[in-house]
Design a protein around this nucleic acid. Structure first.
Length: 581
RNA sequence: GCACCCGUAGCUCAAUUGGAUAGAGCGUCUGACUACGAAUCAGAAGGUUAGGGGUUCGAGUCCCUUCGGGUGUACCA
């Protein structure tokens, strides 16, 4: 049980004793250490309901509160109850954490299956910086959910069946250079895609040719199918290289093409059930008029009036769309994987699509917890959204390479002893970590302008700062002669710096579950920063190896726990830690 | 037109979802290395939370409104 839960349960008992009935006893970490470690505003909330004096009520609650062996409590301000954890209680809790492989983290997700849909790049196009958010945030959320006990299925819903294949097929047939394809397949696919795109701008009729190629592909034409398969294969290999470097893993890569054969039947079912109907030759889902206009995703206000804003599931030309595939995908995940929840880590611009998707799914009888985990846009220098089609965006691979290069330069400068393969490996860990942490330490909804210096910073609140704190701890254990068993050490907490470290270590299990309340990995990023900062202060203030027993063992054990917690926190963010750097 | 995301220190971002005197990093300024690793630490300066109004014990957070930026709004994904 976390300290926060322990306080809540004791407060709940006191509230029942005071009021004669159970009442919600919410405790939060104190906003400011001057007020103690934890606080509750229960007295103020209850006093409002009962129209009594909050401070008097708080006193009454404290009179019924048994905090023996755990904390002290007092009243402050308008009626806050502030709790101060006893150093002995922190010591006991720390000792328990040292013996706990889960580091005090409760398994809140047991029995729940959640599908996490993230990254989902289009094939035959290189990933650019715009793809980084979904990939990194999604991966981190999947890791966190897994650690919290959820059965997680990470699914890369790649765009392997879109309209872009019309252009690629045409380009493949008219201007492919086989030598270039051998040398760098993705590069060549991109080249022909862009070339066709450019041609279309001059000759609109070409668009029809491309559409015809796409229709042939969708009809199962063997030649087009073979070309398509070859494109998919080389693209997947290219993507896998990036995922390997990012240390991102998927359980499945079920792209759009996986759902092809289900689409016609799905549209028929929607027609039969009356959820969709024909309009201007297309099959559309319209509003069921059960919602107020403003909340209805199938209505839109335009030029002074409300009009329909349907989701099209079959085009007038017979083709299927994004919405069709997503409905089929949702069904598959519910039926085949028995998903309780599906998390879609996709940008804000697609919000309307997901509102429509979830609404349509509900009318279809698919009940589950579906979440669009939206994130803000990465903007270009012109402060406008980076467009996938423009083609001149910074490539993801370039960002990673530049990051590693900068890290290598820093290593050469700060620790020239590191050489060769070892230095290269550390540069990889540090550089990639910096990119990931830059992304994860920020609120997901914030838009930002892409900047090399911002994404690749190695100073300040960055991954290298965190990794360095781990290196410092390891350094202590390298110098330590003989074995050390932290589970047998007695914990003594005297200095402010070590009490503060213990305070933060106790919070790991409190912070982690709250991340999934609103899908905010930045809370974990903030936490590990605080922990690392606390460790660095402790490191300066409290000698470990030079201390006398039993303090020495106590401090060693604290270092060991810090190292484990830090490493675990970073692992949940997808960031690795080197032994030296 | 309408909807959604956003506006916080010079810059880049936080703020435990309605809590106490709004916090970090970068940059600026002062100090600390013959070291348990200075990629560090201790400290200083920096704010009318875009403007205005409201709700209440209490608002960066909720409501109304004005301004500014971004995105979306029927056959792309």
């Amino acid at each position: 049980m976390t300290l926060l839960q322990e306080l809540e349960s004791r407060l709940a008992a006191a509230l029942t004793a005071t009021l004669g009935e159970p009442s919600s006893a919410a405790v939060t970490p104190a906003a400011d250490l001057r007020f103690g470690d934890y606080q509750s505003n229960a007295a103020m909330v209850l006093a409002k309901q009962r129209k009594t004096n909050p401070r008097a009520l708080a006193q009454e609650i404290i009179d019924h509160l048994d905090l023996s062996g755990l904390a002290t409590a007092d009243i402050a301000g308008p009626g806050f109850i502030n709790f101060r954890i006893l150093p002995t209680a922190y010591a006991a809790h720390t000792a328990a954490l040292i013996r706990d492989p889960r580091l005090g983290v409760p398994a809140t997700g047991t029995g729940q299956t959640v599908v996490v849909d993230f990254s989902a790049p289009n094939v035959a196009k290189p990933m650019h910086v715009g793809h980084i958010r979904s990939t990194i945030i999604g991966d981190s959320l999947a890791r966190i959910a897994r650690f919290l006990g959820f059965h997680v299925i990470a699914d890369n819903h790649i765009g392997d069946w879109g309209t872009q294949f019309g252009m690629i097929l045409h380009g493949w047939k008219t201007q492919l250079e086989p030598a270039a394809l051998d040398a760098d397949p993705i590069q060549e696919l991109v080249r022909i895609y862009r070339a066709v795109n450019a041609e279309i701008k001059n000759d609109a009729s070409l668009l029809e040719t491309c559409k015809a190629e796409l229709v042939r592909l969708q009809a199962g034409d063997p030649e087009n199918l073979a070309i398509w398969q070859q494109c998919i294969d080389v693209s997947k290999r290219g993507l896998q290289k990036i995922y390997d470097r990012l240390d991102v893993k998927f359980d499945h890569w079920l792209g759009e093409s996986h759902y092809n054969e289900r689409l016609p039947g799905l549209v028929e079912e929607f027609l039969q059930k009356g959820i969709a109907k024909e309009s201007n030759g297309a099959i559309c889902i319209f509003s069921d008029d059960s919602k107020p206009l403003e909340e209805d995703p199938f209505k839109v206000h335009k030029e002074g009036g409300w009009t329909d804003n349907p989701a099209i599931i079959r085009k007038a030309d017979g083709g299927f769309l994004y919405a069709t595939t997503d409905l089929a995908t949702l069904q598959f995940r519910m039926d085949e994987w028995k998903a309780d929840q599906i998390w879609y880590v996709v940008g804000v611009p697609q919000q309307l699509h997901f509102r429509q998707l979830f609404d349509a799914a509900a009318r279809w009888g698919k009940t589950g917890d579906f979440r669009h985990i939206a994130f803000g846009s990465i903007l270009g220098d012109d402060r406008r959204l980076m467009k996938t089609r423009s083609g001149d965006n910074v490539g993801l691979i370039e960002v990673l390479e530049e990051a590693v290069e900068r890290a290598a330069k820093a290593i050469a400068e700060k620790n020239p002893d590191l050489q060769g393969e070892e230095a290269a490996q550390i540069a990889e860990i540090v550089g990639i970590g910096a990119v990931k942490f830059a992304e994860l330490s920020q609120g997901r909804l914030t838009d930002y302008v892409f900047s090399w210096d911002r994404m690749l910073a190695l100073q300040g609140d960055t991954a290298p700062y965190l990794q360095y704190s781990h290196v410092r701890i390891r350094s202590i254990f390298r110098k330590l002669e003989g074995p050390f068993d932290p589970t047998t050490a007695e914990i003594h907490l005297n200095e402010d710096a070590e009490i503060h470290l213990a305070r933060l270590l106790a919070r790991f299990g409190e912070v982690l579950p709250t991340i999934l309340d609103d899908f905010r990995p930045n809370l974990l990023a903030n936490y590990v920063l605080e922990l690392a900062r606390a460790f660095h202060s402790y490191f300066e203030a409290c000698p470990v190896l030079k201390a006398e027993e039993p303090i020495r063992s106590s401090r060693l054990a604290l270092c060991d726990l810090t190292s484990r917690t830090l490493k675990q926190g970073l692992e949940l963010l997808g960031i690795q830690v080197p032994e030296r750097m």
